[in-house]
Every structure is written in C-alpha cells, then in structure tokens.
C-alpha cells in the first residue's frame, strides 16, 4: 500500500502529560474489571443449559473481556498518547485529536469566551486536569484532555488573561 500523503495541516507541537497513559490504562483496567465481574456473575449464576443463547454467551463473554482488556490496556492508551497533541501559540490554541478520524482545531485567543479547567475523580489521582476553551460557536470548542494540573491551571489563567486583553467582540 502506498504511504499516506502528508497531513493537510501542521501537527501541534506538544504532547499530553505522560501520566495520561497511566490514567487511560487505569480506566482500561477499571472497565475490564467491571466487565469481568459481570461475566463471572453470569457464569456462576446462570445454569449452562438454560437456553440456546446461554452457551454462546458463556464463550463470547470471556472472549470479549480478554479482547477489551488487551485493547483498552495494552493498545489504546499508547495510540491515544501518540495522536493527541496540543499547542498554545502567540495568537491561538491548537489541538489534534482522534485516531481513525483526525480533527485539528484552531481557536484564536481573541475569540475565546470562557476557559474551563475540570478535574475528574480519576484525574485527581494522577494529578491531571483537562482544559476546555469555549467560543461563541457551539462547534468551535477546543478540549485538551489530561494535562498536569499545574500546567492546565497556568494555561487556563494565561489564556483567560490574554483573551481579556485582546478581545474585540468575540463573536
């Protein structure tokens, strides 16, 4: 197969925090454990000769848990880390997200309306936070997931301050 043509636009410069990989792995482990418990409960509680679907589920359930575990723990965290990139330039915030469908989003500082920093429960364990930059357009939102908490704080403060300075009408 011929090599992929170059990307239509430049990739942002910076990666997320390396802790993001550990967070995604942790989320994968949690998800796999939940599914594993559900499948175990099914195997223990539902008799094997209950109906025609049950034997299928007895096979498919554990297989699904194994595949889910491999993908969400072994593969996806690293892939995600390699794809997600972000950058704050002098005039704009720039991100790249997505794996199969890639999305580059660029928002100028002068059109920023609000900057949100959120810290989920799992994120707090790993000392991470997400930044969301909102504009007047419902589709023009930039989200940077999983930065180190103090980096996120600094970026948000910096963006909010600069947006205040250069904002003309923001719509």
């Amino acid at each position: 197969m011929s090599p992929l043509p170059p990307a239509p636009v430049r990739d942002p410069a910076w990666s997320l925090s390396r802790s993001a990989i550990r967070l995604w792995v942790a989320q994968g482990v949690l998800g796999t454990v939940v599914y594993g418990l559900a499948v175990t409960a099914f195997l223990l509680l539902v008799p094997g000769d209950a109906g025609w679907v049950v034997p299928v589920v007895r096979w498919a359930g554990p297989a699904f848990v194994v595949v889910h575990g491999v993908v969400t723990i072994g593969v996806r965290p690293r892939l995600r880390y390699r794809v997600h990139r972000w950058e704050v330039t002098g005039e704009a915030v720039y991100t790249l997200t997505g794996w199969l469908t890639r999305t580059w989003t660029l928002v100028p500082v002068s059109r920023i309306q609000t900057v949100d920093v959120t810290r989920g429960v799992v994120q707090q364990v790993f000392g991470l936070a997400s930044v969301a930059v909102l504009t007047a357009s419902s589709q023009g939102t930039v989200r940077v997931p999983h930065l180190e908490a103090d980096v996120a704080r600094r970026v948000a403060d910096d963006l909010a301050r600069r947006a205040e300075l250069v904002r003309d009408e923001a719509t």
Binding site: L4, P5, A7, P8, V9, L100, T101, R102, T103, W104, T105, L106, V107, P108, R111, T135, A136, S137, Q139, G140, V142, A170, T171
Partner: peptide, 17 residues
C-alpha cells in the same frame, strides 16, 4: 471564531479534508 480540519482514513488516502 475557529477552524476545524477533519480527515477520515478514507479522506486521508484520497488527499481530501
């Protein structure tokens, strides 16, 4: 107020965005 460039795998192979 912002730009979004999207590319699926198919678009990428076809040189579209």
């Amino acid at each position: 107020v912002g730009w979004q460039v999207r590319q699926t795998i198919v678009q990428r192979r076809a040189g579209l965005a």
